[in-house]
């Protein structure tokens, strides 16, 4: 009986770990935009970065159930870390990413102990507070961050010593896309691991998870730190590809926007953040080109309608159209786990 369950779990996890055709197509299309949409590389770059940022929020919100209104703290810290490094003559982009990830991870690790305490409301307040504190620090330490004027004079070296950032944003987009893809693959591996499964059980019922012997706090600290590092990388990408950092990388609207993006695309689903980012940015771009003054009205209206009419996420409808045969086959082999649905990878 014992080993039966273990086998079932292993099979279920293995099944989720397999790449579907839809996923392959998604990344192929993303890669194709590098060649076929040369005029749009600047906004695509931004989409890739926001997608990665939303992915990082999904790791804690969708997979571990930690609500956060201050995720921009890590994004901003990563942006400033990469920016300040490049400003002081260390212009290697990959090194910058590493430093940003490390800085954000350290902050994530330290603040995770605050976030572990209390209810969802407390978590919202604490995360919000951390972001506010960081924002004010960046404002005050203008000798380091440039304060309200923003960080000037960032010059990036070529990536791997080969690819120079160009004005068309092509290298920038390729760079952001590759980084996002690599981090996505890692995140995907993590969420289908037993570790990822334990996170979801914590999200669904922390009390029961503790009772069955999952070290709840340690797991949450780990995932929070990981998500912080991801957000730091997203921030660093923004700083490096735009070669500018200003205080609004830490602003509340960053945290709010990324939450919105994730909710549009779907929480607890790794593609949710990416699809949400595509949808949100394209909508914003089209509407604001059409009516620069009132686009927020339309975007608000569309979002409300989307939620009212759809209730379910965008990605669910995409999924509903997929052939059912494969899913049926899979259930023959192993029954799905009771508390987690198939769409959670």
């Amino acid at each position: 009986m014992q080993s039966d369950t273990a086998d079932n779990v292993r099979a279920a996890l293995g099944r989720r770990g397999r790449w579907g055709w839809g996923e392959v197509a998604f990344w192929l299309v993303a890669a194709a935009t590098l060649v076929f949409l040369p005029e749009r590389h600047l906004i695509l770059n931004e989409i890739a970065i926001i997608g990665l940022f939303a992915l990082s929020l999904d790791l804690i919100l969708g997979y571990a159930g930690i609500v956060s209104l201050g995720h921009a703290a890590f994004f901003g810290l990563g942006a400033y870390a990469a920016g300040i490094l490049a400003k002081n003559g260390i212009g290697d982009p990959l090194l910058g990413l590493g430093v940003a990830a490390l800085a954000a991870a350290i902050l994530g690790f330290v603040t995770s102990f605050l976030v572990l305490r209390g209810s969802d409301l407390t978590k919202l307040m604490v995360t919000l507070g951390v972001a506010l504190v960081l924002g004010e620090l960046a404002n005050q330490m203008s000798w380091l961050t440039g304060g309200a004027d923003g960080l000037q004079g960032i010059t990036m070296g070529p990536i791997l010593g080969l690819f120079e950032f160009d004005i068309f944003g092509t290298v920038a987009y390729a760079y952001s896309l590759v980084v996002t893809f690599v981090l996505f693959v890692i995140a995907r591996r993590i969420v289908v691991s037993p570790y990822g499964l334990s996170l979801r059980s914590i999200r669904d019922n922390p009390l029961r998870a503790r009772a069955v012997g999952i070290p709840v706090n340690r797991r949450l600290v780990a995932v929070y730190t990981l998500a912080a590092a991801y957000a730091g990388v997203a921030g660093a990408l923004l700083a490096q590809t735009t070669q500018f950092v200003s205080l609004d990388v830490l602003a509340f609207h960053r945290s709010a926007d990324v939450m919105l993006v994730l909710v549009i695309g779907g929480v607890g689903y790794l593609y949710g953040g990416l699809i949400g980012a595509v949808f949100f940015k394209v909508l914003q771009d089209v509407l604001s080109a059409w009516t620069p003054q009132y686009w927020q009205f339309w975007i608000g209206l569309i979002l409300v309608l989307l939620v009212l009419a759809g209730r379910e996420r965008l990605t669910d409808r995409v999924r509903a159209l997929r052939p059912r045969s494969r899913r049926g086959l899979a259930t023959d082999k192993a029954r799905p786990l009771p508390t987690t649905t198939a769409r959670e990878v």
Binding site: A25, V29, V278
Partner: peptide
């Protein structure tokens, strides 16, 4: 998925 993305593109 592809269609959504292409449509957007």
């Amino acid at each position: 998925l592809r269609r959504t993305f292409l449509g957007a593109a």
